[in-house]
Amino acid sequence: MNPIIQNITGMNALSDQVVAMDLLISAKSGVRNYAMAVTESGTPEVKEILTRHLVEALDMHEQISSYMVEKGWYHAWDTNEQINLDLNNINTALNLPSL
């Protein structure tokens, strides 16, 4: 995170990792929400737009998840590693002083 903003906001815990995780979760909910919406639409025009958005949401999800894998923030294939990371993150969040 940008050190100046970090100091201004006091949010030194809001690391790139947390932001990326938030983006991943949003992308995931996006895909699921779009899947619901597509299966509720019948008008071809609406359906076409929603299907296209769904594909775009999938692309975004793919990008952010491979970025996180690359960074070592997301261990899709190594459960133990992922659990260790989770526990670490949980601790960071728990020990965060609330402002």
């Binding site: 995170m1 938030d22 929400n33 619901m36 509720e40 639409s41």
Partner: peptide, 28 residues
């Protein structure tokens, strides 16, 4: 039902966009 569904998606996407716009300044 389509309109309601689009409304839901719009609300969701609006918060996503707001978040991405503001949070982008915070990442290095």
């Amino acid at each position: 039902h389509e309109v309601l569904e689009v409304h839901e998606m719009a609300a969701f996407k609006t918060t996503c966009l707001t978040k991405s716009k503001t949070m982008k300044a915070l990442v290095s």
